[in-house]
Simulated assay, not measured.
Amino acid sequence: MFAPSDLDVLVPTKDRPGALGVTLAGLAAQTVAGFRVVLSDQSDAPVADDPLVAAQLRILCHRDRPVTVHRHLPPRGMAEQRAFLLDRAERRLVLYIDDDVWLEPEAIEVLLSAMSDLRCGFIGYALHGLSYRDDVRPAELAPYEEWTDGVRPERVRRESPAWRRHTLHNASNPLHLAREHLGTPGPGEWRAYKVAWIGGCVLYDRERLLECGGFDFWRSVPPRHAGEDVAAQLRVMERYGGAGLLPSRAYHLELPTTVTDRSAECYDYVFEPAWAP
């Protein structure tokens, strides 16, 4: 059984002190303590100087969730930012959470329990976009398929039918999937399902992530890129498997993306290097 002391929570951040404060408040309110939080800050002004962020850092430490903040400049893209965080992780499990995500109080407790049972390469929560909570999209929910006999390795590529699963995580689809397949879940209840990838809140077995290369491809992609989490997860999934969890206990704050130039997709450089310009 994995414990909070087995977990490093890795948070990349840049110029979002308000959103980061919400994210840290969610971590401070978790039902379990003893995990460690590591921030990589690429903000123009040190984010730890923001009064609300500073308050949350104090609260985390007071509640036995120690925090380390690294100023990491200049920015070289999200893949390098995630690689930097991974290099500073020390524990068996790493949870990457974006700086615009709020977690329900039992989110980490459930992740640890699920990983203890599934023992795969990664699991995660797709993010709710609650402004879309009344927007039901049956066609996008159709690729849903549960893992019923353990999580197995899968090779997922753009040309494979499994790629169509990416629609499961659009808008507020995770909410509608949970309502359809779980009804009203009980405390701590979870169900594993098959994914193409997960964005924003992903728990990895650190050794397995490193064995599959982590985010080492950052050196071969342009500094302005997107999809670094997709490339890393596809490599881990092919060797160790990956799964999403319902119900999702992670919520997107729905701020504008900080990755505005998406002309270079990491997938093209990792899996189709001959194609990449």
Rank of each mutant, 00 (worst) to 15 (best):
S40Y: 04
M78K: 12
L60F: 09
D15V: 01
D50S: 08
R36V: 12
K14I: 03
R71L: 15
L24V: 06
D41E: 07
G21T: 07
L85K: 06
H62E: 15
T68S: 14
L20M: 04
E90Y: 07
H72K: 04
V67W: 08
I59A: 13
G21P: 01
P51C: 01
P75V: 12
V22A: 10
A28Y: 05
D44R: 12
V38M: 03
G18I: 00
R82L: 13
Q81F: 01
Q56S: 08
F84V: 00
R65G: 11
R76L: 14
D87G: 10
R58A: 15
G34Q: 05
H62I: 02
F84G: 01
G26N: 05
H62W: 11
G77R: 01
R16A: 04
E90V: 11
G18C: 03
I59Q: 12
L27D: 09
A28P: 08
H70W: 14
E80T: 00
G18A: 04
P74D: 12
R63A: 15
D41H: 08
V53Y: 06
T31M: 01
A54P: 02
V53C: 10
R91T: 14
P66N: 12
I59C: 12
T31F: 10
R88M: 06
R71T: 13
C61K: 15
L52C: 02
P74K: 02
D44K: 08
L85C: 05
A89T: 07
A29G: 00
H70Y: 15
D49E: 13
E80R: 14
Q30V: 01
S43D: 07
D15N: 12
A48E: 14
G34S: 03
A79E: 03
A33I: 07
G21Y: 00
R76P: 05
H62Y: 14
R16S: 09
Q42V: 04
R63E: 13
A45G: 05
G26Q: 03
A83V: 10
R65V: 06
R91L: 02
D87C: 04
P75K: 04
V53D: 02
S40W: 02
